[in-house]
């Protein structure tokens, strides 16, 4: 049964050197309170997996995981797009951050494979490009005249998710495009933490609308009125 904790307690579970998946697409669907606490703790040497580096808002406010990048808390970063957070490119070029770029659809399926017990993903995406030499590409096959790349599944120590309505059993309903990678990440990590925007009683969620069943969730983060 999922345990209800604060964002501060959740951030403290993650230790230096751990691998962490962060849900979100440009910060939309990222567990911001947990990320903020993780930034305060300064936990470093993390291997992060997130669609993008998010962005720092014009007024200087960090958004999504951008503060963790700013603080240099990642040693390695698996992402699909980093162009909107210039700090990722700077750290990549000065050698302080190892960035592994993955096509977005491949990233989604590598997470799904990691959680679904599959040995990998076979996709036509990336054939004939430099990604054929990237670390997650295991080889190439040809079926019926079409070339495909074989990609490794992704797994991690932690998944840090954001849910819109979460019941006390950890069942998650998402809202809007904030869903993105959260449902796949929920299945692919040893320890799964979901930050609840709204925490509701068991039975309040319609079972038809639950996207991530609570069996995947270890910790529910609720600080009493999360944004």
């Amino acid at each position: 049964m999922a345990k209800i904790i604060t964002s501060k307690e959740a951030a403290a579970l993650i230790k230096s050197g751990d691998s962490v998946m962060f849900g979100g697409f440009m910060g939309c669907g990222t567990a911001q309170n947990v990320v903020n606490e993780l930034a305060k703790l300064g936990t470093d040497n993390l291997t992060a997996m997130c669609n993008d580096g998010a962005k720092t808002l014009p007024d200087g406010t960090f958004y999504g995981i951008s503060e963790l990048i700013h603080n240099k808390q990642f040693k390695k970063f698996y992402a699909t797009h980093i162009g909107l957070n210039p700090e990722v490119g700077q750290q990549m070029n000065d050698g302080s951050l190892e960035v592994v770029l993955i096509p977005q659809g491949s990233f989604a399926e590598m997470l799904r494979a990691g959680g679904a017990g599959l040995g990998g993903v076979i996709t036509p995406t990336g054939v004939g490009t430099i990604i054929e030499g990237y670390e997650y590409v295991q080889g190439k096959v040809n079926y019926d005249g079409v070339d495909y790349l074989i990609l490794k599944p992704l797994k991690a120590d932690f998944a840090v998710l954001k849910g819109y309505k979460v019941d006390k059993a950890g069942n998650i309903c998402y809202h809007g495009t904030a869903r993105n990678f959260n449902p796949m990440m929920a299945t692919a990590a040893k320890t799964v933490i979901v930050e609840a925007e709204n925490l509701v009683e068991i039975g309040e969620l319609d079972p038809d609308n639950i996207v991530t069943p609570g069996m995947f969730v270890d910790y529910i983060v609720y600080d009493g009125g999360n944004k």
Binding site: F25, M26, A108, Y164, H175, T177, A178, R179, M184
Partner: peptide, 30 residues
């Protein structure tokens, strides 16, 4: 915090639209 476009800017959905996860999104695409 909930509805953004692919550039991360606030967006909207039309009547009859659907929100999907990233795996479904690329099932449509790929």
């Amino acid at each position: 915090a909930h509805i953004c476009d692919a550039g991360g800017s606030p967006a909207s959905i039309l009547t009859g639209g659907a929100f999907i996860d990233s795996s479904m999104s690329f099932t449509m695409i790929r």
